[in-house]
Amino acid sequence: MADFFKKLKKRLRLTVQLVFTALSNGYVQGFAEGKIFRGKTKSVCVPGLNCYSCPGALGSCPIGSLQATLSDRNYKFAFYVLGFLMIVGAFFGRFVCGWLCPFGLVQDLLYKIPFFRKLRKLPGDKFLKWFKYVILAVFVILLPLFAVDAFGQGSPWFCEYICPSGTLGAGIPLVVLNEGLRSVIGWLYAWKVAILAVLIFLSILVYRPFCRYLCPLGAIYGLFNPISLYRYKIDSEKCTKCGACQKACKLDIKTFENPNSTECIRCGDCIKSCPHNAIKK
């Protein structure tokens, strides 16, 4: 038993990711019948990127909900979802990405697949990491808000044209399980499956490419990292700037210089790797 808990502690993050993903996608009947959950809990957002059309989803995706509210002609400002993101961001920042996001878990598992050459980052990483903010501004906020039909109603552009989490968690299972949906798929479905396929390949090659370069939710939570209540501190008396933390960081962050980088997903590898115990939570 003690051995079990020792192993569990060693794999604490993976355990939390698996348990949280299972709990927030616990509507097993949906997977069996090709339907989605229709209960009241879906009025509450989950912290991670988790499509509300996933057959198992018991809550709502904050990015989907944000677009749904912004594109609704009756609202045009999303107090509810933005308030939720502020609360979660102020407490946890990108801890959510590292510990609670189902699509983060998928990428973590894909990165475990052996490949003859793994990359620390993609070429152009310095510029590519800004792309998630462009996606947030254009596809999540501006287009749903201003590209509207004759009745003033917009669309969830990020969900429609980009989100690979929706394709994996909802698009593929629903199309496989539901004959009616299967008969109406077209070029858009093929486009989204192609994005997912590219991201799956890239996730084997480089650690968390979607979180680094594309995720608008990670972009929002990242802005909170420097001030969130859960943050890292460097003990300057102990730190020798040896760089062991950066070497251990799969996102290649110089933790000793910037412990609360907007890119940090709080996996904790830097803390474990520090030979001087200089990084504190």
Partner: peptide, 21 residues
């Protein structure tokens, strides 16, 4: 403002945009 109902309405119906239809 009733935004919560809007979120619920969207979430309890299959989101055709989200699944690529």
């Amino acid at each position: 403002r009733g935004e919560i109902e809007s979120v619920l309405r969207k979430a309890v119906n299959i989101c055709l945009e989200c699944i690529g239809i």
